[in-house]
Structures are given as structure tokens and as C-alpha cells.
Write a protein that binds this DNA or RNA. Structure first.
Length: 342
DNA sequence: TACGTAATGTGATTTACGTCA
DNA sequence: AGTGACGTAAATCACATTACG
């Protein structure tokens, strides 16, 4: 008789895991970060076909919910998505003139949204018409019903269409020539950040410290979707007076931070699992020794052909039954009171 | 000085598009 | 003319790393 407990490749159900998982409010999994990320990303987009099969295990992944208003970590769940659109979107819809003060006093550029069906020949088409008459304000026309419908992957428009679409944005107003130009230049070895600052003043890498308000705003956006499609990026950048690339980088770094923390939690949890299983293994080994001792000290039982060892499914105690004598010996596998044993 | 994080560099992947047999 | 294979460009991502405040 061999007891073999291991933490090998084959996932074995851990009875306490489910309960613990519920208690902690997250799931456990050992999938790669990419999978978790992808799943999260896909699930977070309504129009995206959710194809997040648990390939590596049937167990749901350990999902650390680091989002401030996540139901898993907060007693009062957030309003449903339908009531909480993109934070900046709500501001866009609200703001018509002048500055709009956000929660913590963030001044964002008010944007006027006008849907023009005549100029909107396809879903998602956006018309930005920056209003530079007032240097502090802008307006653009956009189909809000479809702007955030798709996410990064599925929203990829044909290049020509996208170029056309993005060309309607006054990128000069956004403080950059065009994102592709910058990418090209960054691939050239100079690095992205050099286009504006470096080229202008010849200084090295300039690190912008985002304001609390900008960070909070980005954080709110991240809560909604942890990835951005090009339109979202542009709108958000416009709202925060940042370059789209900065918004993109912020989201990338934010995802990395989330993943890092997720990994830490995974490690901590696995450590706990390991300790628990080690303890369980130790206890079972001891139990085995006792059974072996019982076998040698009471050979009569072993000679009896009708003796069987069964385990009570309810209390998980091993029951040694000898029908001829109706003698029953129980061995507890769990350190629990035996009162409830049938 | 350590730390948090914005910024950069790189390789992989996906998508759209043009060309050619 | 329609079609599939193939190459290319662009966009975006994760990841590792750098460097600034």
C-alpha cells in the first residue's frame, strides 16, 4: 500500500480549494498570464465572442480582482456596465461647454458629441471636429453607440479605413504628428519618446509624472476595459491632454502591474496549498503506519476472508467490517468528532 | 538610496491588402 | 474574372529593461 501525494503536473482536486476560493473571492489557475489576460479581455467586451475555454484545467483560474470596485473585494457591487459607461464617455456626453470638473477635481476637455448619420456611413465611424476657436475646448462628432462596441482585437479596421478614420482627428491638436510616424521612428532605434520632447529641445528621455487626477481617470477607464481600441485611446488622450501613445503605454504598464500582483497572489496561494498538502501527507503517512501496526498486532483480521475495508463517504472514516462477526473497527481519516458517524 | 512607474526596445501575433500564378 | 497562396505593412500586445521623479 502506497500513499502518493504530489504536486505534479496532473491537477488533482483539492477539497478545501473550492471553499477557500469562495472565501477569498477569487479563482485559481495555473494558466499562463496571457491566457488569463486574453480571457479577461475577451470577457470584458460584449461584442467579442467569448472563447475562453479552460484548456489546461477544468478548474477556473485564480483571478485576483485588483480592480477597486470589483464585487469580489467590495461589499457594494458596482453598477452594471450599462449604467457605468466609460467614465470619459459620460463626461463627453455631459460636457457641452466649459470645463467639466471630475470627481477629484480633474479638469477635462469638454467634448460635444453630435451624431450625423449622413456622414456616418459605417458603424463606428467617428467624426472629430476639433474646435480650436477656444484653445481650451474642443468638440468632435462621433457615433457613441458604436464607438466602444469593439475592442482591440476585433475592432481592427482595415488599414485604409482606419487611416481614413483617424485622419479625421486633428492629431496636431492632440499634440503629435501621427502615431504611426512615431512608431516608425521608434523602430528606427531612436525610441518613441524622442519625437516630441527630444527633437524639440534635444533633451533625453523626459518622464512625465501623471497627476493624481489623470491617474484616477485612467484607473477608472482600466476598470471598465483593460485594453483600448484606437478610438478609446484617442478620446481618452484627448480628455486627459495626453498623447495617445502615453495612454497606450499607461494601459500596458497597468496590465503588467496587474499581472505581477496576480502572480504574487498565485504564489502565495500555491504556497498555502503546498503547506496544507504537506501536512495532509504527513498525517496520512502516520495513519498508514498505524494501520500497518494494527495489521501486525491483529493478524486474525487479515486471515479472515470476508474482512473488507470501506470508507464512509460522509465522514471519510475507514471502516473495517467483518460480516461473520459483525465486528466493526473504524479508523478516522479526518480529525473530526465521530458523533455524526452513521 | 530605494521605489514606483513612465518610457523604451524587442519579438510575436493578428489583420488587411496587394501581387501573382 | 474568381481564387488561393504568399509576402508585406501596420497595429498591438507581452515582456524585459531603462531611467526619471
Amino acid at each position: 500500500m502506497e500513499l502518493d501525494l504530489s504536486l505534479g503536473d496532473t491537477p488533482k482536486p483539492v477539497p478545501f480549494a473550492d471553499q477557500k476560493t469562495k472565501d477569498l473571492g477569487f479563482y485559481m489557475g495555473l494558466e499562463s498570464g496571457r491566457q488569463i489576460q486574453d480571457c479577461h479581455q475577451k470577457n470584458s467586451n460584449d461584442d467579442e465572442k467569448t472563447n475562453c475555454s479552460s484548456s489546461s484545467s477544468d478548474r477556473p483560474p485564480l483571478q485576483l480582482d485588483l480592480l477597486p470596485f470589483s464585487p469580489a473585494l467590495h461589499q457594494s457591487p458596482p453598477p452594471p456596465p450599462s449604467h457605468r459607461p466609460f467614465p470619459w464617455l459620460s463626461q463627453i456626453l455631459i460636457a457641452e461647454t466649459g470645463f467639466r470638473k471630475l470627481g477629484k477635481g480633474l479638469d477635462v476637455k469638454p467634448l460635444t458629441a453630435i451624431y450625423d448619420p449622413d456622414n456616418c456611413d459605417e458603424p463606428g465611424a467617428v467624426q472629430y471636429s476639433p474646435d480650436n476657436s477656444n484653445s481650451d475646448t474642443s468638440s468632435f462628432q462621433m457615433d457613441f453607440s458604436s464607438i466602444f462596441k469593439s475592442s482591440t482585437g476585433s475592432s481592427r479596421l482595415p488599414s485604409r479605413k482606419r487611416e481614413l478614420e483617424l485622419s479625421t482627428v486633428n492629431l496636431d491638436y492632440l499634440g503629435e504628428t501621427s502615431e504611426r510616424d512615431q512608431r516608425v521612428s521608434s523602430r528606427g532605434g531612436g525610441g518613441y519618446g524622442g519625437t516630441s520632447d527630444e527633437d524639440e529641445n534635444g533633451l533625453g528621455r523626459k518622464k512625465l509624472r501623471l497627476t493624481k487626477e489623470q491617474s484616477a481617470f485612467l484607473e477608472d477607464s482600466f476598470k471598465e476595459h483593460n485594453t483600448l481600441n484606437p478610438k478609446q485611446k484617442l478620446v481618452l488622450a484627448n480628455q486627459l491632454n495626453l498623447r495617445p501613445r502615453q495612454v497606450e503605454v499607461w494601459f500596458q504598464n497597468r496590465r503588467a502591474r496587474t499581472k505581477l500582483k496576480q502572480t504574487e497572489v498565485d504564489c502565495e496561494y500555491l504556497k498555502t496549498c503546498c503547506e496544507t498538502l504537506t501536512e495532509e501527507n504527513r498525517r496520512l503517512q502516520k495513519e498508514l503506519q498505524e494501520l500497518r501496526a494494527l495489521k501486525t498486532s491483529q493478524p486474525f483480521y487479515m486471515q479472515h476472508p470476508a474482512t473488507t475495508l470501506t470508507m464512509c463517504p460522509s465522514c471519510e472514516r475507514v471502516v473495517t467490517t467483518t460480516p461473520a462477526t459483525a465486528a466493526t473497527t473504524t479508523t478516522t481519516l479526518r480529525q473530526e468528532p465521530v458523533d455524526g458517524h452513521p
